[in-house]
Every structure is written in C-alpha cells, then in structure tokens.
C-alpha cells in the first residue's frame, strides 16, 4: 500500500506540529487525553437521527486548532481522506430507511439521509478530535499520559518502541519493495513466492535488529524494566481545561445548542 508511505509522511508532519509551543501544547497531556475522551463519548452518544445537536460540538476542534495554531486545511484534508468506511456503511441508510422525518417546505427528507449525514458528521468530529489530540500533544506524550492514567508499563514501552522503529522499518521495507519492483519490469511479476521471501528476509533482518537493540539496552544497564522520568504535572491550568471542556460537552449533549439558537433567531424574525 503506497498509502502507508504517504501516511508516514503525515505522521512526521503531525509529530512536527506536536513540537509547537502554544497554550494547548504546554498543557499536561493527561488533561488533553481525558477531555478528548469526554468529547468523543458525548458525540457518539447522540441518537442516530440527531444532526443539529452535533453541530455545536465543532467548537472543540475549532478552538483547539485556533489556539494550537494548527493548519486547518491540512487536518480537514486528512479527515476527509480517512472516513471511507463510515461513509460506505452510512450510504446504505437512505435505501433502507425511507420514512420521511423532516419537511423543508415541499421537500421531505428521509430518516436514512439524516442518519447517513449524521454518521459522516460524527466521523469528522471523532477522527478530527483524535488527530488534533495527536497534533497538539505528540504520540510519546500521549503514551506517557496513558501510563500515568494506569496503562501497564509493558504496553507503554511497546507503543514507544513501535513508534520509534516505524520509520526505520518502513524505510527498509520500502527499499526492498522498490528493488523488487525495479526488477520485475512492470510484468507484475510480484507473485506470492517472491513476496514471501522478501517478507521473510525483512522479518529476519527485523529480528536481528531487535537483538542488536537488546544488546545496546543491556549495555546501558537495562534489566527488564524501562525507567521513566516524568516531568510535567497536573496543575490548575490542566484542571480548568478539563473541567471547562467536560462541562461544555455535557451541556451540549443534554441541550441542543443549535436548536436553541435557531428557535431564538426564527422567533425574533417572525
């Protein structure tokens, strides 16, 4: 999949964004992780025919993008690229669910269309929240935060190792695969046997690399437990951030903000 190579470039870019220095960047990662979780659960908990109630939730990504100085266009493009599965499933709704729910003058909109759009909006919100979390926090910091929130050290180290060697290994895999393509002369001679031996070689080299890494860890006093040095702390700013966003999410979940504004405005106009 060439898309993985592209995704890795994205990964590097997200990583670079996380190196930024803004008020959100500086917050302890735990506050951001927890706030994002509350946000996602709130969004997801809406009923399938709810649409307008979801709209006010765009305030969370919008504010974070603004304060964090993130490139909004780039994030939007990423989000649009990654929701094909949700759309693929959601697109069936209009066919199976034809009961008209909303009347806009002469136009009747079926529940299927509404739930389909609702699926897409949810995807944009939740995927966007995850991406923004990564962009203002950085993956290693998220891992450390999860560790301090109770994730086992073994798994944290696994994630950090994976993250570190993702780049090394995909480059290695990319080189091997290019070499094979160059010699298959567009004949699509990329059959199973050459694939298996290429993958086998890559696997063995990976294994040897693991042995060398293990050696270099031992050489620096590793005895099976990864040492962890924590620096940042959960202070007043973090508490405020978490409180404000959580209560806003809950408020918006329980009261339809868009409906409220809509009623207000149409009431004044009429």
């Amino acid at each position: 999949m060439g898309s993985i190579a592209g995704a890795l470039l994205d990964l590097k870019r997200l990583d670079q964004l996380a190196a930024g220095d803004s008020a959100v960047h500086r917050l302890d990662a735990r506050a951001k992780v927890l706030a994002t979780l509350v946000f996602i659960v709130s969004v997801i908990s809406f009923g399938r025919y709810e649409l307008s109630g979801l709209i006010p939730f765009f305030i969370f990504p919008a504010v974070l993008i603004a304060i964090g100085q993130l490139p909004a266009g780039y994030l939007a493009a990423k989000i649009i690229l990654v929701c094909p599965f949700a759309v693929a499933v959601g697109i069936f709704n209009p066919f199976f669910d034809r009961g008209v729910l909303v009347h806009l003058g002469p136009l009747g909109i079926s529940g299927g269309w509404i739930s389909c759009v609702s699926i897409v909006v949810r995807t944009v919100l939740t995927v966007g929240a995850a991406l923004i979390l990564a962009a203002v926090t950085g993956f290693p910091a998220i891992c450390r935060a999860l560790e301090r929130l109770g994730m086992p050290n073994v798994f944290v180290m696994q994630l950090l190792f994976l993250y570190r060697y993702l780049f090394v290994l995909t480059e290695e895999g990319g080189r091997a695969s290019r070499a094979r393509e160059l010699r298959s002369f567009g004949r699509r001679g990329l059959n199973l046997s050459s694939y298996a031996s290429l993958l086998g070689h890559l696997l063995l080299r990976t294994w040897q690399r693991a042995e060398r890494i293990h050696m270099s860890m031992l050489a620096r006093g590793y005895d099976g437990v990864m040492p962890v040095g924590h620096t940042s702390r959960f202070g007043v700013a973090e508490m405020l951030f978490l409180l404000i966003w959580s209560s806003l999410c809950i408020l918006l979940r329980l009261n339809n903000g868009a409906q409220f504004i809509g009623t207000l405005v149409t009431g004044i106009l009429s």
Binding site: Q158, L169, G173, L192, T206, H214
Partner: peptide, 25 residues
C-alpha cells in the same frame, strides 16, 4: 527482557509488511 525490543520492532515490521503488495494469482 529480550521481548520488549523484539515486540516493538515486529510491530513496526507489520507496518512495513503492509506496504508491500503482491499479485493474487
């Protein structure tokens, strides 16, 4: 204690492996 680095790089290996395609006969 060998497993920590091994699991880490094998995870990365999975990514690399998913980059490489072959033709289904």
């Amino acid at each position: 204690d060998r497993k920590a680095p091994l699991m880490g790089v094998l995870g990365a290996f999975l990514f690399a492996a998913q980059m490489i395609n072959f033709t289904i006969p």
